[in-house]
Design a protein around this nucleic acid. Sequence first.
DNA 1: AAATATAGTGTCACTGAGACACTATGTCAA
DNA 2: TTGACATAGTGTCTCAGTGACACTATATTT
Lengths: 229, 229
Amino acid sequence: MQRTDFIKKPLFTVDSVLFTVQDNVLKVLMVKRAELPYRGTWGLPGGFIDIDLDQNTDMTARRKLAAKTGFEPNYLEQLQVFSGLERDPRGFSVTLAYYALVAYQAVASNIETVEMACWIPVSELTELAIAFDHLQIIELARQRLQQKTLYSMIPIFCLPQQFTIGQLMAVIEAIIEKPIQRKSLMRRIEASEMFEVSNEKTTSGGRFAQLYSLKPDANIINFERNLSV
Amino acid sequence: MQRTDFIKKPLFTVDSVLFTVQDNVLKVLMVKRAELPYRGTWGLPGGFIDIDLDQNTDMTARRKLAAKTGFEPNYLEQLQVFSGLERDPRGFSVTLAYYALVAYQAVASNIETVEMACWIPVSELTELAIAFDHLQIIELARQRLQQKTLYSMIPIFCLPQQFTIGQLMAVIEAIIEKPIQRKSLMRRIEASEMFEVSNEKTTSGGRFAQLYSLKPDANIINFERNLSV
DNA sequence: AAATATAGTGTCACTGAGACACTATGTCAA
DNA sequence: TTGACATAGTGTCTCAGTGACACTATATTT
């Protein structure tokens, strides 16, 4: 018979992989660790639950992200729990990892002013010293994001409220690292009935592009087929 | 400046939703709670991490399930973390929920002998007193299982190593609660190249059915389309 | 030998993605 | 003003995989 308050408790933290797409490149928000362990290396934004502040772990993730970016992400979803004895030198640890999406435009101005936080292209992460198993976590988050991009419209959360098909297409291609058919994307936008049209807009030299935005009451649907592997 | 060992730590537990299919009905393993809170009501099998026994949370789930069934599940995957102040009267709690699959045949004999554990059809859960938010957890697990059944072969983990297409079809239909086309299932088995054939076998009055089994080195693939909604 | 039950095949229709040529409409430079 | 260029959007054929369902195959039972 053990009393639960005598059981050795593992360290429990909440970390987030915040993605954005800038200049057709998928980037992750990394923060320079100010404390031990792994002081001075790059790690994911996150920390401990504060029971007085957070109603649940989603709030922990949001709070920690807001502290670094000044904004809450457009999209936030649980990724997976990582646990074990080896992943943290302080002992057995349990980390709930989230992945999140935000429009680069939304945080571009704030991010500069904040303490050691930085958007790093996912392709360049291997060149850096990354704390804990955060590299693995990011890799899994990237896979999940890629997979989900094949059958849903989540990439819109990397864009401003109003966006063009060209922009969406560019973001999708940055995420899955493969070209897609503009036509297929338009068919999906049409068929999903999730979006409404607005006025016009030009980006660079070219014809005006239709602006789309998510309908206020739209429920995000999943398509029954994936885009090409 | 807070020292981490002074931060109020939430209660962290690992619970599992263990599914099986018996007589074309999807069932969940529930255990009668012997202790407070919710003593005497039905709850999910689970408990606290034992840092000395468990290398990670997967092991916690497996260990707790083995204690109730005498077997490890054929399939185990993280579902989601549930957290909050209201879900446990003892205070802020964090539960990592898994969902798992097992062949009914494998545990049929053992389950009887074990302490208050019982297979309960998911459709009959609402008639019982269920502890905590375990009803919600089961519902989410069921949705995930249904969804995954549409684009993968996980239902095979509800069957013995060798199974017929008829059995697999019955399990799938029990999970998604809709009829499917035998032909579509056979096409998928063929296309996936995940299975190998064995000898023959009869079930009830009818032609012998081909027995299939997962290839030893097979990697479980996902199909690019869902079965019919 | 016929009825019945389950296993498995042949094949056509339908849906939605891929490919790609073609049209539409804007900017920019000569 | 005009033509090159760039981006937006359409038309349409092909292709793969699922749904539907009739049909064949092979076992048991009566």
